[in-house]
Write a protein that binds this DNA or RNA. Structure first.
Ligand SMILES: [Mn+2]
Ligand SMILES: [Mn+2]
Ligand SMILES: [Zn+2]
Ligand SMILES: [Zn+2]
Lengths: 150, 150
DNA sequence: ATCTTAATTGGAATAATTCTTGATAAGGAA
DNA sequence: TTCCTTATCAAGAATTATTCCAATTAAGAT
């Protein structure tokens, strides 16, 4: 059971609240994201979803991801020119991309700090969205590199 | 004069320091970026550069932009799935993308604050790069929207 | 002036994503 | 249930940004 029942319930309501339908495809895509929270690309979602819904098409995976992000159930994660990744963690957080092993890690916000306080806004900007991404080497890969160097 | 002489000098040295050549094409691309600091895309750079170097190709513009970023003279700016933009401002700063008029604004870092202090890193991450982008409506577009509403 | 290697060009190739169109399926009304 | 309307899906074509490739040109050293 990838998605806890109460989350599934909430997703259902959100979808229905928009006059949309919770189809097998949409549920399966959402389940994949909730099951392995490793920020898969659309193609990775596609291959995982086919285990449950073998007839699904890649176009439908893109459609479902669009719908889910449109409903605010999922967030799109971008990093440089790489394919988009998808994340069901709705808490405010940044992302770390390991250049060595490719993993993506969630970085939670430290309490009482806000991105808006770090940068200076010259005027009355109306912020609707922001995204923060770091890259480098993750703890595992950093340790490995340090070991091989000495 | 798009690029101040001392900057031009610095760019020359940086390029030469890497064993590369400062060609007409590379200088023209750098001049375009220094001249209008509005974060143009590769295609926009291409159309502007052709005024000075009419025979330049788009592939060369991409090559030059690659070289300049490789030398650290220019930074690549990404935002969602949009084409990459280029910025010659080497100070640490974030970007604001106006969804209404398309302009990109530099947001300087407030003194004594660092992105690394805002998010929590669970372990020994080795940060080599980070990028912060905001989107919404810029002051001009926000004012226009407020006026038309009342 | 010649030589060696870097840089440029134009076009083909690639990769992610979006679009189009016809088939299916869901849910409401009769 | 059956019919009707509309949302959704599927398959493949199209689009877009970017990269790759192979042949030519230009720099700069000898
Ligand atoms: Mn995440
Ligand atoms: Mn900038
Ligand atoms: Zn790693
Ligand atoms: Zn604006």
């Amino acid at each position: 059971m990838a998605t806890p029942a109460n989350q599934n319930q909430k997703a259902d309501e959100t979808i229905h609240g928009r006059g949309l339908r919770m189809t097998d495809q949409r549920r399966a895509v959402y389940d994949v994201l909730m099951g392995e929270r490793d920020h898969p690309t659309a193609v990775e979602v596609f291959t995982r979803v086919r285990a449950k819904v073998p007839t699904i098409s890649l176009a439908t995976v893109y459609n479902c991801l669009d719908t889910l992000t449109g409903c605010g159930l999922v967030k799109t994660v971008t990093h440089e020119r790489e394919p988009a990744r998808y994340c069901p963690n709705l808490e405010e957080h940044a992302h770390f991309f390991c250049e060595s092993c490719g993993t993506v890690t969630d970085l939670p916000l430290r309490s009482r700090k806000r991105a808006e306080d770090v940068w200076e806004f010259p005027g009355e900007f109306n912020i609707s969205h922001h995204e923060v991404s770091f890259s480098g080497t993750c703890p595992k890969c950093s340790a490995k590199a340090a070991k091989s160097k000495r």
